[in-house]
Write a protein that binds this DNA or RNA. Structure first.
Length: 871
RNA sequence: GCGGACGUGGCGGAACCGGUAGACGCAAGGGACUUAAAAUCCCUCGGGCCAUGCCCAUGCGGGUUCGAUCCCCGCCGUCCGCACCA
């Protein structure tokens, strides 16, 4: 006897056990076409959060749907397991980072498994596993051999208390986020990956990623920041060899130049500062402002006249002053510019501060050059050149070309004075971190041989286990013996590189490792890479729009170009899902209160919240991103324990479009819960009226049976289309609509057993209904599928096919408008000719009334859409 | 400042290529069943009016069109990204 209510607590573990034992989700049937669906793998913080539930539920719907569509689906899971939190935990609790990390992985794996995700767990990887980072080290060495790695001095944010490098986002108001110490700018020798080599390819290939959000492509475009311009060299007056090279995108405005400005760290500026203490002090001041993001925003343009003068390239008698200025960046272009105040706002602000003047040299069409004055706002639009000697009358583009040509042929100090140049904002990727819990950089420093790669046979360079975290700085550096090693080349006493890699490196190739996760000799076999890559659908948060995705695109190219195989673009389809947000609650004391501590009432004064303990009323605040500090989080474990995984999955997929934020509400969860129960009930009711499994179709269908079948096939078509387009919320809405239709059809049944045609229609409906909901709520679907008499599980059932003849409507209802306002509705055959429709429309009482006896001016028929009568 | 996205009932949202605005759900109100509750089921649910019907309504103001949530112009508001990149 089937129970009245669905007991998720019994059913969910039962079905997961069956999936697990039968290895239903293991990929590798080469006879089928492949489909690779991947969600961004989690950092093992210890607990999954609702954001994970949403992310992985979406991926799972796609995986289950594609599997049912006959694809060999790769849907793996792993752990982004290196990173600073493990070291922080080690400092605080004394547990070793590895112990802490693997314990977290174990508990999160249990949590993820309780969600019923159709993952191939046999491919699980963790980036902190030597079996994984061994290949990462090999890739690094291959990149090094392939000219994709650089070692150079670079400025870093140095925390003098923690003895570590900080990322920009770890510097808060000029201080280290953890230590609170004033951050210093230090020059350190660091390892860099030369992502800049691929700048142009990474930029132009964005156009091919037509299944990426336009927003992400735009962000990457801006980040890469290509600009075409000219390098131009200015001779220093009175110095036979001295010169300053500037980069400009506006060579056309050269006759509007009023000054040259240098970054404080420009070599010429440093040289000048060495004999001018005031300039040295000014440069030092600039460096300090550079550390604070807030300061840059409000900083005034400031400069210091070095006293140097440079000669205008087109007029030996024209000299320009050379300033050191706080707004010039050393690491973009050449660290030097020429300033044209009339046509650049920054230059104008600077010129106004130092009385340098502004001569307009570009005049917009239709403006009299004589009246052209620039005082507060620079003009950066199009126009024709004025006040520019041989450039006068040319367009901006023509003038740029002319200046470039002339400077390319002009000579200064025996070299061409100008050179066309394409610049990128994208910098090479510094990967050195002075930390323990990361992938060791496989390099040995020998006093005689210099930088020596660790030989392949010695890989992986494993992290030592006996480390301490009681001292600030890098534990690898403090380790008594680990860094001492013989040089592989000459055998002399040498020292290991003690820096480890940025954790973004770990996540830049994990999608490739999943294709062949247990390969010991290579990151992945080329045939596995070509079998699975690119990832067909990648799903994750928008916060990775730039770095992770750009680094991965770079790695995929670098892996291919160092002979490992694979593809240029790792992610053919990208979807960025929205966050899960929640109301906030605050007591009168100002303390944040967790939703689990509250009870709610709805009355005359609207919705109110009270503490369960004590009954104090608390204020219901804004809906915000879930965060521990505001205590507005919900624990997936609690939800799954009280409602089951299917309810949690259904809720995060319903209501809101997947790319937008979804508000977590108790009412919404209960709505999902009710529907899970309804699925179970409805399947049971349908079963009672349905023909047995495999019953053959009767020759004829009556009206009632036909209506049910039409609803069935229309829903198959709609849900499939919605899932393909990742519109899970509308897919679920269609299924709920279908449930309403089936309930109504069952209500109409007067006699049991029903006629054979209706029984067939109900059998078909019951099966399809369960199959359509299965990707979202797989456990209850399996339970119902079994109750419906199927011997095989629904997870292995092929997706139902919509019969086009049943999807098409034979009678359609056409709205009839008079002068654009709807007045009536007519029911006509889908293939009715215009004359029939016209006759029907024009005899409608409401239409005639609206026409008020006026003569018909025009009759518009949009087939299958609408009729409009114009009078 | 620059770039982008978005504004639809009490709420989340739907509406395919310019063709019935408000699917589906949440909340609310009314009712049935019940000793009662839970669960379930049914009905109402954008606003207004001279209510068998009509008018207004997709942030605001214009425009194009037989017809505009959708296209164009101008405002207002919200959110996101970048932030002196020469």
């Amino acid at each position: 006897m089937r129970p009245e209510r669905y007991d998720f607590a019994a059913a969910e573990p039962k079905w997961r056990k069956i999936w697990d034992e039968r290895q239903v989700f293991t990929s590798g049937d080469a006879a089928k076409p492949k489909y690779y669906v991947l969600e961004m793998f989690p950092y093992p913080s210890g607990r999954i959060h609702v954001g994970h539930v949403r992310n992985y539920s979406m991926g799972d719907v796609i995986a289950r749907y594609k599997r049912a569509m006959g694809f060999d689906v790769l849907h793996p899971m792993g752990w982004d397991a290196f990173g600073l939190p493990a070291e922080n935990a080690a400092q605080q609790s004394g547990s070793h980072p590895a112990t802490w990390t693997y314990a977290n992985i174990a508990s999160m794996r249990t949590q993820l498994k309780s969600m019923g995700l159709s993952l191939d767990w046999s491919r699980e990887i963790a980036t902190c596993d030597p079996a994984y980072y061994k290949h990462q080290q090999k890739l690094f060495l291959d990149f090094l051999a392939g000219g994709l790695v650089d070692r150079k001095q670079s400025k870093v944010n140095w925390d003098p208390v923690d003895h570590t490098v900080l990322a920009n986002e770890q510097v808060v108001e000029g201080r280290g986020w953890r230590s609170g110490a004033l951050v210093e700018q230090r020059e350190l020798t660091q390892w860099f990956l030369r992502i800049g080599k691929y700048a142009d390819d990474l930029l132009t290939s964005l156009d091919t990623l037509d299944r990426w959000p336009e927003k992400v492509r735009l962000m990457q475009r801006n980040w890469i920041g290509r600009s075409e311009g000219l390098l131009a060299r200015f001779a220093i007056a009175g110095d036979p060899t001295g010169e300053i090279e500037v980069f400009t995108t506006r060579p056309d405005t050269l006759f509007g130049a009023k000054f040259v400005a240098l970054a404080p760290d420009h070599p010429v500026a440093r040289a000048a500062a060495s004999s001018d203490p005031a300039l040295a002090a000014f440069a030092e001041e600039c460096r300090h402002i550079g550390t604070s993001v807030a300061a840059i925003e409000t900083a005034e343009k400031k400069g210091y006249d070095t006293g140097l003068r440079v000669v205008h390239p087109f007029d030996p008698s024209w000299v320009l002053p050379v300033y050191v200025a706080n707004f010039i960046l050393m690491d973009y272009g050449t660290g030097a510019i020429f300033g044209c105040p009339a046509h650049d706002q920054r230059d104008l602000d600077f010129a106004n501060a130092y009385g340098l003047g502004a001569t307009p040299v570009v005049c917009p069409e239709g403006v009299d050059p004589a009246t052209l004055i620039v005082s507060e706002t620079a003009f950066d639009g199009e126009g024709r050149l004025v006040n520019s000697r041989f450039l006068d009358g040319l367009t901006v583009a023509e003038a740029k070309e002319e200046v470039a040509k002339r400077l390319e042929t002009a000579q200064l100090h025996g070299r061409p004075q100008g050179e066309r140049k394409i610049n990128y904002k994208l910098r090479d990727w510094g990967i050195s971190r002075q930390r323990y819990w990361g992938c060791p950089i496989p390099i040995i420093h020998c006093p005689d041989c210099g930088v020596v790669p660790v030989p392949d046979a010695d890989l992986p360079v494993k992290l030592p286990e006996d480390v301490t975290f009681d001292k600030p700085g890098n534990p690898l550096d403090h380790h008594p013996t680990w860094k001492n090693v013989a040089c592989p080349k000459c055998g002399a006493a040498a020292r290991r590189e003690t820096d480890t890699m940025d954790t973004f490196v770990d996540s830049s190739w994990y999608y490739a490792r999943f294709t062949d996760p247990h390969n010991e000799s290579a990151p992945a076999a080329p045939e596995q890479l070509s079998r699975w890559l690119p990832v067909d659908q990648y799903i994750g948060g928008i916060e990775h729009a730039i770095l992770h995705l750009l680094y991965s695109r770079f790695f995929s190219r670098a892996i291919r170009d160092t002979g490992h195989g694979g593809v240029a673009e790792p992610f053919a389809g990208l979807f960025t899902q929205g966050m899960v947000v929640h109301e906030t609650y605050r007591a009168a004391s100002g303390k944040w209160v967790a939703p689990s501590e509250l009870r709610f009432e709805t009355g005359d004064k609207g919705r109110r919240a009270f503490l369960i303990e004590g009954g104090e009323e608390v204020a219901i605040g804004a809906i915000e991103k879930m965060s521990k500090s505001k205590r507005n989080t919900v624990d997936p474990d609690d939800i799954i324990a009280s409602y089951g995984a299917d309810t949690a999955r259904l809720f995060v997929l319903s209501d809101s479009p997947p790319d937008r934020d979804v508000v977590w509400t108790e009412e919404g969860v209960q709505g999902a819960w009710r529907f899970v129960q309804r699925v179970y009930r409805l399947a049971g009711e349908l079963a009672n009226a349905a023909a047995p499994v495999g019953a053959s179709a009767p020759a004829e269908f009556g009206a009632a049976a036909l209506d049910v079948r039409k609803a069935t096939h229309r829903t198959i078509a709609a849900v499939g289309d919605n899932i393909e387009r990742l519109r899970f919320n509308t897919a679920i809405a269609r299924i709920r609509e279908y449930a309403n239709e089936l309930t109504a059809a069952l209500d109409k049944v007067e006699t049991v057993p029903v006629s054979a045609d209706l029984a067939f229609a109900f059998r078909e409906a019951a099966d399809v209904f369960v199959q359509l909901i299965a990707p979202m709520t797989p456990h209850v679907a399996e339970e119902c599928w079994s109750d419906l008499g199927h011997s095989e599980i629904v997870s292995l059932a092929p997706w139902p096919e919509a019969d086009p003849t049943l999807v098409a409507q034979d009678m359609i209802s056409l709205p009839v408008q008079v002068n654009g306002k709807k007045r009536a509705e007519i029911l006509v055959a889908h293939d009715a000719d215009e004359a029939t429709i016209r006759e029907e429309a024009l005899t409608q009482e409401a239409v005639l009334r609206a026409m008020e006896g006026k003569p018909l001016k025009k009759f518009i028929l949009v087939p299958k859409r609408i009729v409009n009568v114009v009078v």
